[in-house]
Design a protein around this nucleic acid. Structure first.
Lengths: 135, 135
DNA sequence: TAAATTTGCTTGCATTTTGCAAGTACAAAT
DNA sequence: ATTTGTACTTGCAAAATGCAAGCAAATTTA
């Protein structure tokens, strides 16, 4: 897949992996839901096209950000989860949320969550990481 | 320009503005250099194409992230700088660097900077914001 | 147990974005 | 007066995106 590296800059290398319009939305879904099926991603508000979703999931898996797991209930279903590398994107995600809060009008529920985050950023982070790691 | 919003999610809204492969590299250049000419951006390692650069700068300006200033020495030159909204992307940029440090091999100089950042994140942030604000 | 449905994709094709090379307009230097 | 520098624009080929339809295996329903 997209394997060429534009430079050695950490920002550039990171963008080469997840710097498109969709990857971080997939990661976001997994940070909220902890685990998602293929269909769950398709249901998100942004309405990602199914071929794009398949490509992105493959890319994120190749890059060790998400992992595919067997669904306990059915062989027809697949579970996607964040790896440690994916979970480590949480601080970036939080900062994006905080930036967006300053410059966009957010849904009330998200505002509430951000209030909680700002109250105790480190605490929130640690708690969320723990939850995402639990099997 | 790209003015449609995919959803009300802060992550999605943010990506709609600067979530492409190039915008954050432009912002990065301005965070390091404080101000850049059009030519300065073209000189960066990643070798952005000139038409893409023009489009991105316009987009970033329309979205209030960068501002165009007159160059003190010449009418032929233009200076680009970060606005407050652009400067506020610094925490995101720092977190991306910290993530990348964990998962990529970085150039030695960048590693040194990151060491400094980790020693005192808040202090670094404040100092850098102050520098970027100075005229 | 056969048929219908769910699930996770793949395929084909039109539209959009990107990337490269060349060109242009205005300012400044020679 | 001519050449050079600076900031773009334009044209076109290649790649990525987006939409709709198709498909195979697993599961549910009749």
């Amino acid at each position: 897949m997209d394997t060429k590296k534009r430079s050695d800059c950490p920002i550039s290398c990171s963008l080469d992996v997840w710097g498109d319009k969709w990857s971080l939305l997939i990661v976001r879904d997994l940070m909220f839901a902890k685990q998602c099926t293929y269909g769950d991603f398709l249901k998100s508000d942004e309405k990602i096209a199914t071929n794009i979703l398949a490509t992105r999931l493959q890319m994120l898996e190749e890059n060790g950000i998400v992992a595919k797991l067997n669904h306990p209930d059915s062989k027809a279903k697949v579970l996607y989860r964040l790896t440690q590398k994916g979970i480590d994107l949480l601080p970036i995600m939080i900062e994006i949320n905080l930036w967006a809060e300053k410059y966009f009008t957010l849904p009330a529920e998200r505002k509430a969550l951000l209030k909680e985050i700002k109250k105790n950023k480190e605490g929130f982070l640690k708690a969320r990481i723990k939850e995402l790691k639990e099997s």
